[in-house]
Nucleic acid binder design. Structure first.
Length: 678
RNA sequence: UGCGGGGUGGAGCAGUUGGUAGCUCGUUGGGCUCAUAACCCAAAGGUCGUAUGUUCGAGUCAUGCCCCCGCUACCA
């Protein structure tokens, strides 16, 4: 490995479109914070950079919906997010934001440099344009009927009802989200970053030179690289973002994924005039902490940008985490299925470290993981209270009881004492190794083992029993216990910064550097400790946990719409329009799954006049066996169409509820096949 | 469907280059009483998703299949 002189650590820029939840913390900000705090204790030169990502279409949409401006939206969330980070002790050197002038300037220059090097290609394409509002429409600004599920309010990039991803041109009856008018297709040109040209470089750099990256990251990159890269547009027609810094650019801005990672650079620039030392010296180790949704940007796109610009270093590692679930369900902002950080602190004031500890212990390092309130309670009660808090409390009580709070003399340690003293140093080596490999879960557990060692030492030496006959021995034991506690105050700092602060107060000591771990002379003989300190942790009762679980249940219920959101009734049609439809009753003769498709079933239907094949997306609701023999209603004169290579002659009718349940339509009493529906 | 990740005692996870399967919590039994009924010791509990194969030997390598997650495809 290279010999690095300094570290530059970035954590994914949170999108200023909503508050933070435990998933953000567990996946990105706590791991990065542990890493950085560790490096600082090691007296390494390190910067920890983050900020709000404030551009992009969703923010403009939210502003429009709330009748406010994009700037007001990002101002609101930026301050909520920043406050949450502060409260949880996420120790950024700077928390900036991409709406700042320094960012606009940095991103512009970045773009200009690549442009001057002919690093972009310019391409013209047809995009939807709102001629009333005089602007091009981003995919999300186009609303229309989903070609799949007929939802009339599908967005141009995705239908939120059936989940399919779309392109704007697929929408039926597209209309502009701004003026409501039908948009027209108009030519526009954009700049593209030719990722394909960087492919050979990226392949060598990642696949050959960074085999040490985590399997999930390496695998994902390999998958993208093997599939082949395509040029990616770096600009958009939008009025919120960093303007494209070219004379002929018109009202175009940099695409948000292009400007966001540059935010790391501009924040560093804002922080220190020395920023180039961190971004442009080969002996800086750049590390991006992100979630798995961001792998492709940080491992493929951003490095290609940096390389195209030419003067920057590339990340040495990108330790991406998987996702955290909540009570066995995916965390969802829109469904309000989340533990929001600001709400947590309101319910559990002063308990930042309990959440930090729990989240670290279940960090989704190798696969998705699950947060449950029960587990949170167990971790607090069994590990923080019973093991760590209790050990330190025992030491304090014993020292106060036998020595009035004065650290007794070490005296002459016997073999057992020496063994304990010598073990301390091993913890340092072990935790160090684990942190440097980004195994924070294990690192935290190993650090906590020191408290375990302390409890065991007390149980084996039993100072309370031998005090009368052998006070010197007790002095040795308690001296060592105090040294163990002082060691804890160092080794736990990356994980439990608030607790460590309290431990220092209890022992009445200052801070030590990392390399002091293992020393048994941290606290001098005669040093006075706190006589009646508060407890480090307190139990969390069942009632508190039940309250949280109820709260989640409530949000679940409020998510299930009491008045279901049905689409509005469509425009009136003439009876002659209806007459064009040939709807009939038929019987399913045969049914089978369509191979290589999850949702499709293939049927042979007796329509009364013929036997025909119909393919239908029912596989998630009915098995082939259930379907055989059923009477169904179907459209008989729909233009035949090939689905997965099978020609389908008609469409089986179902009713669909707002939550996606399907029910077949069948005649209420026995009637012949071929009977017309009208 | 294609690609990627994961599938290890009740729960959550480790298992480096193949050599007797570990950790935390929980459970059961015992010990201790300085401590927030906390702590310490011991025990029970796994044919490592599944089937073949490579090997003297496989959780660890290869291939097929099954299940879960993400992206992707399919819903006239």
């Amino acid at each position: 490995m290279k010999n690095f002189k300094r570290y530059l650590v970035t954590a994914a820029l949170p999108y200023a479109n909503g508050p933070l939840h435990i998933g953000h913390l567990a996946g990105v900000y706590i791991p990065a914070d542990i890493y950085v705090r560790y490096l600082r204790l090691k007296k390494q030169d390190v910067l920890y950079i983050c900020g709000s990502d404030e551009h992009g279409v969703p923010i403009t949409l939210r502003a429009r919906k709330e009748g406010t401006t994009p700037q007001q939206v990002v101002d609101q969330y930026h301050s909520i997010i920043e406050k949450s980070f502060q409260e949880f002790g996420i120790s950024f050197d700077i928390y900036s934001r991409t709406s700042k002038p320094v960012h606009h300037q940095t991103a512009s220059e970045f773009f200009k440099t690549i442009h001057e090097k002919n690093g972009f290609i310019e391409k013209t394409s047809e995009q939807y344009y709102d001629s009333e509002a005089n602007q091009f429409l981003a995919d999300r600004y186009i609303i229309g009927t989903c070609p799949r599920c007929a939802n009339e309010n599908a967005y141009g990039d995705q239908c939120e009802k059936c989940g399919t991803s779309l392109s704007p041109t697929e929408l039926i009856n597209p209309r502009s989200a701004i003026s409501g008018t039908a948009p027209i297709l108009k030519e526009t040109s954009h700049w593209y970053l030719p990722l394909d040209e960087w492919e050979p470089f990226l392949k060598k750099w990642i696949l050959e030179e960074h085999k040490e990256w985590k399997p999930n990251v390496y695998g994902q990159c390999k998958s993208w690289l093997d599939a082949g890269l395509l040029p990616r547009a770096v600009s958009r027609d939008l009025d919120w973002g960093v303007p494209v810094p070219l004379a002929n650019a018109g009202s175009k801005v940099l695409y948000v994924w292009f400007d966001a990672p540059i935010g790391y650079i501009s924040a560093t620039k804002e922080l220190t005039p020395d920023w180039e030392k961190y971004w442009k010296s080969e002996d800086t180790r750049l590390i991006h902490f992100i979630g798995k949704d961001n792998i492709v940007f940080h491992c493929i796109v951003f490095p290609a940008m940096l390389k195209a610009e030419g003067s920057y270093i590339l990340p040495d590692n990108v330790p991406a985490n998987e996702f955290l679930n909540l009570e066995n369900e995916k965390i969802s902002t829109s469904r309000n299925w989340a533990v929001w950080l600001h709400e947590y602190l309101a319910d559990f004031p002063q308990r930042q470290d309990v959440l930090r500890y729990t989240l670290t212990s279940i960090a989704p390092e190798t696969s998705d993981n699950d947060f449950t309130w029960k587990n949170f309670q167990e971790k607090n009660n069994n590990e923080l209270v019973a093991m760590l808090g209790n050990f330190i409390n025992r030491v304090v009580v014993l020292t106060n009881k036998y020595y009035n709070g004065n650290t007794p003399e070490l005296g002459i340690p016997d073999a057992k004492d020496l063994e304990v003293i010598n073990t301390l140093e091993q913890f340092k080596t072990n935790v160090e190794k684990l942190i440097e490999e980004f195994h924070f879960r294990d690192a935290q557990r190993e650090a906590m083992n020191i408290a375990r060692l302390g409890n065991k030492y007390l149980a084996e030496t039993e100072p309370w029993r031998i005090f009368k006959e052998n006070p010197e021995k007790v002095a040795t034991i308690l001296n060592i216990c105090i040294q163990i506690t002082a060691n804890l105050s160092i080794i736990l700092e990356p994980f439990l910064p608030f607790t460590v602060e309290k431990i220092r107060k209890i022992l009445n000591i200052g801070t030590f550097e990392w390399n002091a771990i293992g020393s048994h002379t941290l606290v001098p003989t005669g040093h006075k400790i706190d006589a009646a300190p508060e407890l480090l942790f307190s139990k969390i009762e069942d009632a508190e946990i039940e309250k949280q679980i109820e709260k989640l249940q409530l949000s679940k219920m409020s998510n299930a719409p009491i008045v279901p959101q049905f689409p509005p009734v469509k425009e009136n049609i003439a009876y002659t329009d209806f007459e064009k439809l040939d709807i009939r009753i038929g019987t399913i003769l045969e049914a089978q799954k369509v191979p290589k498709a999850d949702k499709l079933l293939q049927f042979l239907v007796d329509s009364g006049v013929d036997k025909r094949t119909i393919v239908s997306g029912l596989a998630l609701h009915y098995t082939p066996e259930q379907m055989v023999g059923k009477k169904v209603t179907f459209i008989a004169n729909l233009e035949p169409r090939k689905i997965k290579g099978i020609e389908s002659h008609g469409m089986i009718l179902t009713a669909e509820s707002p939550d996606g349940k399907l029910a077949l339509l069948a005649p209420e009493s026995e009637i012949q096949n071929g009977s017309l529906v009208k």
